[in-house]
Amino acid sequence: MAKYVAQRLLLSIPTLIGLTLVVFFVLRVVIPIDAVDLKFASAGVSDPEKAKELREELGITGPLAVQYLRWAGRLVSGDFGKSFYTGRTVAEELILRVPTSLEVGLGALLITIVIAIPVGILSAVKQDSFADYISRGGAILFYAIPGFWIATLILVFSSLWFNWAPPTEYHDLWVDPWANLKQVALPIVLLGLSPIGTLIRLVRTQVLEIIRQDYVRTARAKGLPSRTVYTRHVLRNSLLPIVTVIGLQVPNLVAGTVIFEQVFVLPGVGRYLLDAVQRLDLFVLMATNLFFGTLIVMANLAVDVSYGFIDPRVRLN
């Protein structure tokens, strides 16, 4: 098992390197605007000397390959650069913001799993019943409804009917956990709802397939309580594709986190990114893009590793 995990870890390194290449390429080659020029233009000054100095200081001069290696070298030592505008280091900001984004994203993932797996199993066990139709219809509906629309509706109607508006001041989880939970509960639930549909449908089809297997009949025949049959024999055997699909939902959750941080004014990495896009804050953009990409790579890694736990055949191969 340790060998399998180590192997997967090593395999994610080229993906991470690829990710840095893509981020660098997008921000330094595809974008036609120069960040330093923009900074000077927005301040209303034109000083080629100073601009050149700043570029030297930031390490964005010379051939692109050299620039990339310089940037990557700093990344390895934990130096993400500085914001052009606030002057604070990106690392400092990330330490403050990452917990908020992770809280929302992981919370939503938890909501999805906790709701979708039981509902999917129920839907399969009671196939073609009323409950099944409701859950299947609901599943597609949840997929189709844009979460940000529900958020907008809730904001509009709760202010209209209950005169309620989300707090604009952010409460830190470690300082005031209760106030923080009240604040993030709504975004977490709304974000968790959209992947539910995909997952319910998958769990249902998987379970439907497994239920018909001989070993399930055997398990029943030897008198196991149906609870044990479902958790130990049915769910365990249908887990592989379910875990795969949960992994595939992570990019959507990441995107949703950005949207909901904006809607509910939460100071996470997503808002940091959106603010940085407005003024081409180069190093912030590079770091935040990299952060979200790394999250997805990590999620894929977690999925791969869990394959090894779920199915012994995988780790022996």
Binding site: T15, V26, I31, P251, A255, L273, T288, N289, G293, I296
Partner: peptide, 20 residues
């Protein structure tokens, strides 16, 4: 393809469209 699927699509879109 593996690498491309691991990219944060909407994030990259926001970055690119926001800047271009």
């Amino acid at each position: 393809v593996d690498l491309a699927i691991a990219l944060p699509r909407l994030i990259i879109l926001i970055t690119l469209i926001g800047l271009m």
